[in-house]
Simulated assay, not measured.
Amino acid sequence: MKIHKLLSFILLASALIGCEDSKKDKAEWFSFNTAVLKPQFKAGEKATLEIVNNKNKTIDSIIYYLNSKKITKVEGNKKTEFAFTNEKLGYQNLKALVYAENEYVETEYRVELVSNVAPKLLSYTIVNTYPHDIKAYTQGLEFHRDTLYEGTGNGEGSGTRTKGKSSLRKTDYKTGKVHQIVELNDDLFGEGITVLNNKVYQLTWTSLIGFIYDADNLKQLKTFNYSKRIEGWGLCNDGTNLYQTDGTEKIWIMNPETFEMTDYINVYSGNNKIKALNELEWIDGKIYGNVYQKDAIAIIDPKTGAIEGIINLSNLKKKVTQHPDIDVLNGIAYNPRTKTIFVTGKNWDKMFEIRVE
């Protein structure tokens, strides 16, 4: 009996190995023709799809897919074209399901879709200058009912992220006076904030949790866990969904009730991915975002991730008090009443009200 079982096992193992070898052999039958399919395309550009028949098999038909969605079917091995029209920017997975000699064989190829938009450099004027807490390591800034809400981290200097306490504040933007403050535990580093349905949402940096407060009294209502193991950086909302950055080129779209990350966009300026996106603000259907370590604001199309405009605010840092703990521009708040934007930085003693031309 034992000999019979051993022989059965050997025969099964041999069959499995033969099957794996067969799969490897088939994988070499076909490949995408990279002579006509380049690795990078601009949005709206057409790609030519054709299969290289490496083993001279008789091809009956080919079904092409983009990110698991069927594009088209061709008879034989005819060339076909596909235009990148409604896809979000970033890497795209092409797959061909080739039917040849009574077999279906898959082959794949990855291309990168980049922006076809040339960002415009926008100018601005300073409308007013207001005082700002020089010890506030600004992470999030947002208006709600003419009150300015500010989230801070617990770092008082560039790269320290150790001093003081992270907080959520309600302030008088004209005087800089803090009306109310809630401090986070010492082990939590506060990040971006946004206000939706009279609730303040606040992220933490690496703790994978966020907080929800009543916007009227800053009473903590609940905590939530990130549905993905990502960092928390900036936060904004479009009136329905939350948008969260994680330090990469991604902006995640989050359901504010279930906290599931339902989708994401990749942010591009021309051919380049833009990483380290930080504080966010939703303004007239666009996302305005700080890029960490850059004293500028990028204006992003939330449907595609393409950067459409840049506001260079590097001159503002020269207008604040220079001290050892001063850090980069961070903080964007749109006041719908005045239709102006309020910006500040980490440990800046001033906040600027600007109007973008």
Rank of each mutant, 00 (worst) to 15 (best):
T194M: 05
L12K: 00
G18S: 12
I59T: 02
K55D: 03
Y99K: 05
N278V: 04
T321S: 15
S227F: 00
Q202I: 01
T248I: 03
V291S: 03
R355G: 01
Q92N: 05
L218F: 13
K5D: 10
Y226I: 01
G247F: 00
N315V: 07
G176Q: 09
F259Q: 05
T204R: 11
N290L: 05
G159C: 01
E357D: 15
K69G: 01
N56M: 03
E279N: 06
W282I: 04
V114S: 09
L316H: 01
A118R: 05
I311C: 14
Y288G: 07
L122H: 03
V111C: 02
V178W: 00
A118Q: 13
E353D: 08
N54H: 04
Y268K: 04
I3K: 15
K319R: 14
G305I: 10
Q322E: 14
Y292F: 13
T304F: 11
A306N: 06
Q202D: 08
L329S: 02
W252D: 14
T72C: 10
V127P: 00
G159N: 03
E108R: 09
K73H: 03
T171A: 12
G190W: 09
A306W: 06
E108G: 07
I212E: 13
T248E: 02
D238N: 12
K250Y: 13
S227C: 02
I193M: 03
K23D: 10
L316A: 01
V356C: 11
I307W: 06
K222H: 04
T125R: 15
K57M: 12
F41Y: 15
A43Q: 15
G151Q: 04
V267D: 06
Q322D: 14
T171F: 05
I287V: 10
P302K: 02
L7D: 05
S314L: 01
Y65L: 12
L97N: 07
C236S: 13
L16C: 11
H144D: 07
A96Q: 05
K219P: 00
Q40Y: 08
K135F: 12
C19Q: 13
Q139V: 00
S207H: 05
L66M: 11
R337H: 14
A43E: 13
T206F: 06
V36R: 06
G234L: 07
M254H: 00
Y104T: 13
K2C: 03
L148Q: 10
V117D: 00
D172S: 09
D301T: 09
N77C: 06
T204Y: 13
K222I: 01
E75F: 10
N185P: 09
